[in-house]
Amino acid sequence: MSIPAPPEKMMFQLSLRRRGISDQAVLHAMEAVPRDRFVDPIHRDGAWRDTALPIACGQTISQPFVAAYMTEQLGLRADHRALEIGTGSGYQAAILSRLAKWVLSVERFKTLADSARQRLEDMRYDNVEVMVGDGLALPEAVGEFDRIIVTASVAEVPQSLLDRLAVGGVMIVPVGPPAGRQTLLRLVRGQDGLVRKPLVDVRFVPAIPGTAREL
């Protein structure tokens, strides 16, 4: 006999559908990834609520709807290489891992990268690699990616990331001032250049160049 999902998890899934998330693969991924494993113990009672929550190093774990919406806009396939800028707790990387062939997640804070890497390994998300580095200045050696998701805001889309986006690739990135209105952009690289489409207003912590010295 199967064990029914707890009420808060059922409401979590219902909320995503009510707010317009319709891609079944994304919904299944959101259902399969246990968000309560990616938040600090003090916040676990609210892990299934549709709200962002604080994590270490002054960062946040994204609101579930935003995570689902950004993922849906990527249009991931099982043969895709995906790049995430801003690992945080590893929650978004775990979602991506269920939809893509391989995920590289880059985090500037070593503390966050190490804990996320261990968490993902313990939960057997084996197709995710977490790297400590400057996500705004990646070396050419990392190659090109079919999909790129940036989970911190930038004033303008970094050329360094555009250089990593393959032809036919899609990037989702919040663009705008740190203390003002940010817009989620969807960029598609075609043979003749980029097509940019504004999606929704969002609020993310700002992306900071370089790697953190101590954390």
Rank of each mutant, 00 (worst) to 15 (best):
L162T: 10
R181T: 03
V200I: 14
R98I: 01
V66Y: 00
D122V: 08
G180V: 14
T51H: 02
V202I: 06
L136I: 10
R124I: 05
A113T: 10
R196M: 05
P6Y: 11
L185N: 03
R196F: 07
F109D: 01
E31C: 02
E8P: 13
L27V: 12
A67D: 03
R213T: 12
G169L: 01
H80E: 08
P177T: 02
I85T: 01
A212M: 01
G75Y: 04
D23Q: 01
M131W: 12
D23A: 13
P7M: 04
R18M: 15
G86I: 08
I85K: 03
A25P: 02
D79N: 04
A93C: 04
V106D: 04
D126L: 07
L161F: 10
T183W: 09
E140Q: 14
G20I: 00
I85S: 00
Y125R: 05
L162N: 07
G180T: 08
C57Q: 04
K101P: 00
F12M: 15
P209D: 05
G58A: 09
L112Q: 12
P7Y: 08
L99R: 01
E140A: 11
M10T: 07
V150I: 10
Q13E: 15
Q191N: 13
F109R: 00
W102H: 15
L184F: 03
A141W: 04
R186Q: 13
A25F: 03
Q73E: 14
I61E: 00
T51I: 13
D134R: 09
T51V: 13
H28Q: 12
V128R: 02
M11T: 11
M123Y: 10
Q92G: 03
A113M: 01
D134A: 09
D134S: 04
E156G: 15
T71H: 02
E144T: 13
M123V: 04
T111V: 07
I55A: 08
I208Q: 07
G88A: 10
R181Q: 11
A82E: 05
T111W: 09
E8N: 14
A29E: 02
E144Y: 09
W102S: 14
D163L: 14
A155G: 14
P198I: 12
S22K: 10
T211C: 03
E214S: 12
A113Q: 07
G90S: 09
Q24I: 11
L138W: 10
R181V: 15
A155L: 14
Y125C: 06
Q182R: 09
S2F: 15
S15L: 11
D146K: 00
P54L: 12
G168M: 12
I208M: 12
K197W: 00
I208Y: 10
H43A: 03
A141N: 11
P41E: 00
Q182S: 11
G176Y: 01
S22L: 13
L187Y: 03
T51A: 14
M11A: 15
Q159P: 09
F12H: 06
A25H: 13
V188D: 00
